[in-house]
């Protein structure tokens, strides 16, 4: 059960990283959901001058 859970967590992190990376390449702030998954504070991210 925990194994399944951690595999799922790895995949969701990977997916969030992929989505966030493609968003920043376009000078856009990634979706809040992706940032949450990655443990990034949304407001701190907004403060970066993209």
């Amino acid at each position: 059960m925990t194994v399944l859970r951690s595999i799922r967590s790895v995949f969701s992190t990977l997916r969030a990283a992929v989505h966030a990376a493609s968003a920043v390449e376009m000078h856009r702030v990634p979706a809040t959901r992706d940032l949450n998954t990655l443990g990034i504070d949304k407001d701190a991210f907004r403060a970066i001058h993209l």
């Binding site: 992190t13 990977l14 969030a16 990283a17 992929v18 966030a20 990376a21 920043v24 390449e25 998954t37 990655l38 443990g39 990034i40």
Partner: peptide
């Protein structure tokens, strides 16, 4: 072939925070 170095940086940040 994933296109770009950004993905690794996001993953690394998430890992370190955990």
């Amino acid at each position: 072939p994933a296109g770009g170095a950004e993905i690794g940086t996001f993953l690394s940040y998430a890992t370190e925070k955990k």
